[in-house]
Amino acid sequence: MNITQLPYIKDVYGFLGSDVMSGLVGLLIIAALVPLNVAFLVLVERKVAGHIQLRPGPMEVGPHGILQTLIDAVKLLGKEMVTPSSTDKLLYWLSPIIVVAPAFVGFIPLPFSPLVQIKDVNVGFLLIFSFSSIGVISILMGGWASNNKYSLIGAVRSVAQNVAYEIPLLLATMPIILMTNTFKLGEIAQAQAQSGLWFIFYQPIAAIIFFIATTAETNRAPFDLVEGESELVSGFHTEYTGMRFSLFFLAEYTNMVIAAALFTTFFLGGWHGPVLPGAVWFFAKTYFLLFVVMWIRWTYPRIRFDQLMNFAWKILIPIALVNLFITAIVLKVL
């Protein structure tokens, strides 16, 4: 929440400095929001999967199984955290912690509505992308430290995949930056709200590339080669148990939320929409995108690794470059 805009709070906590205070409150809100949101998303995922697969999904705990993920979280908390004897203890312990932290940071510049935003950082989306890149390091650490060949293959795949897909991801956002002349996510959403025309209508190709690249960045099917359970058992987190495993899970779903929120901000007009308040529109769009991601996951088989690489380097990056080039020329001429 942009607390600096509410004068009385600024008066009360002025001695702390409004930025520090709003940051702290914001982080607390994130810390509460993220796990709850993930618990909800896991339930949605299981329900969506269930209904696509001609079965009801979780039904036992609570009405229609709505408390299932809470029970699962309790179960995971109670489980023993096994550390295999031949692991690199420090890296093995550090990896699940490092994977979660950048996922939380990603929430700071997200504009949920004109008022609800923790801080409209002037490097906005660069902040999110640079922090999400740290997640890759932790996956590599976890895969390497596990001392398991399946984990190692998963980790190596993860690095190659993330490096390859970050390029089209950034190239797909550059046309938006050219059009709005700002890195601030709040202003990008504002620009669309003012004109009323969402950027997906100006940049449909960039939107598709962005969607594909974020799906690959968040290791979701059909690009979930990092986990690829049919070949790599469980990929980089094969050796992780209990709460450590659930931290990887938490990070995956949090990254999904951030990716969907970014797509909403860049291409779907952010909070812009009639009648209902902005935050409602923002979350509605984000959750619709998350549903699409789940829908894709339960429909498509997994793509093979060489095909994945070819897709990024031979198809997505050239198209994204051409798209950027055309956008630049059109903007210059107009």
């Binding site: 999967a49 697969q53 001609l54 079965r55 979930d224 690829g228 429909t299 498509y300 088989p301 997994r302």
Partner: peptide, 10 residues
Amino acid sequence: GLGAITPFLW
């Protein structure tokens, strides 16, 4: 085996 779980359940 190719990663598509839904056909299996169908």
